[in-house]
Amino acid sequence: MEQLQEAFSTIEKDIIFKIWLLCLCNLDETTIVLGSIVEDDITIQQQEHLMYLLKIFGNQIDKITILKTWRNYDHIFVDTFEKLKDICVHSNLNGSQEENEFKILREMCLRILWNILKCPKHIKYRQINKQALYNNLCSRCDILGADFKQVFEKTENQLQYCGFKKENDDNWYCQYDHTQILHLWNCYKYWINEQIMFIFMCLLCCHIKQDMVFKEECVCYRMENGKTMKAYLIMNIEQ
C-alpha cells in the first residue's frame, strides 16, 4: 500500500485503499486501475463512479475491459454501466466459477477478521496454520467447483494486507497492536458489504473493552440460506 501511495500521490489514500480491495489486493490490477485514473485525469466523482463499476462488474468482467469501456464512453457512468451490463449478458465468461471463488474468499476473510475483532488479544485467532488453511480452502473449492490456486493465492494476499506475516514455518502470524483494530475493521466493513443479506433490525449500544471504547451496532441479518445471523458491528473506536 505504501508503494502505491507513493507512486500515485495525486490520488487520495482512501481511493487507493478501496481500489486495492476491489482488486483483491492484486498489485498488478491495482496499478493498472490507478494508472488509468492518473492518465485520464478524472474527477473525484468519476473515480467514485469507476469504483462502483469495478464493484458491480469486477467479478464478471476483467478490469482491462471495464477500463476500456469506461474510456470509450468518455467516463459517462450511465452509458458505461449499460454497455458493461450488455457485455455480461452476451459474454461467454464463466461467471459462476468466479462468483464461487469470490464467495469462498469473502467468507474466509469475514471469519478471520471477525474472530480477531471479537477477541483482539486472543492468540488463537492471530495464528493461522498453513496446512489447515490449505485443507479448508481446498474442501470449499472442491464443493463449489472453484479454482483452488486462485483462491489460495488471493487469500494469502488478503492475510498479508490485514497484517499477517508468514514466518519460517510457513504459518501466518499477526501480532497484537491496538492501533491495528481500525484497519481490520475497515477491511471487515468492505467484506460485510459484499454479503447478500437483508437487514431487519438495528440496535445501537456502547461498551468498554480492551481499554478502548467501542460503539457498536447490533444488526440481525437474514442470509441467503434463510438462517439469521446477529452481528455486532463496531461503528466507532475511541482510545
Rank of each mutant, 00 (worst) to 15 (best):
I19C: 04
E12Q: 04
I87T: 11
I208E: 05
C138N: 13
T10Y: 04
N100D: 14
D142C: 14
I42G: 03
R111E: 14
T228S: 06
Q180F: 15
K18C: 09
W114G: 08
W20C: 06
N193E: 14
N186Y: 10
S91R: 06
I56R: 03
N26E: 14
F152Q: 03
A146C: 14
K124A: 09
V38E: 09
K130H: 11
V219S: 00
D79E: 12
I181H: 03
E194C: 09
Q150V: 15
E6N: 02
F148T: 06
T43I: 01
K166A: 14
D170G: 08
D169P: 06
M212E: 13
K166N: 15
F8G: 04
C141F: 08
Q160F: 09
D142G: 14
E224A: 14
T69R: 03
Q60E: 04
Q160D: 04
R111A: 15
L53S: 01
L27G: 00
C218Q: 15
N94L: 14
L53W: 05
L113S: 00
N94A: 13
A132H: 05
N236H: 12
E156W: 01
Q239L: 15
K124Y: 03
E156A: 03
L159K: 10
I237H: 01
I32T: 08
L27K: 09
V38C: 09
Y161L: 12
Q160N: 08
I32L: 11
I112Q: 05
Y188D: 02
L137Q: 03
F81G: 05
M235T: 07
F152T: 01
D28G: 12
Q3R: 01
C138G: 09
I104R: 10
N135D: 13
E238D: 12
N136F: 10
M51K: 02
N186P: 06
D86T: 14
F77V: 00
M235C: 12
G163R: 05
Y134K: 00
H178T: 10
L159R: 11
F8Q: 04
C138Q: 14
E217G: 05
L105Q: 01
L204K: 02
I112W: 00
K124E: 07
F164Y: 11
G95P: 08
Y232E: 12
D28C: 13
A231R: 10
F214D: 06
E48T: 05
V151W: 07
D40I: 00
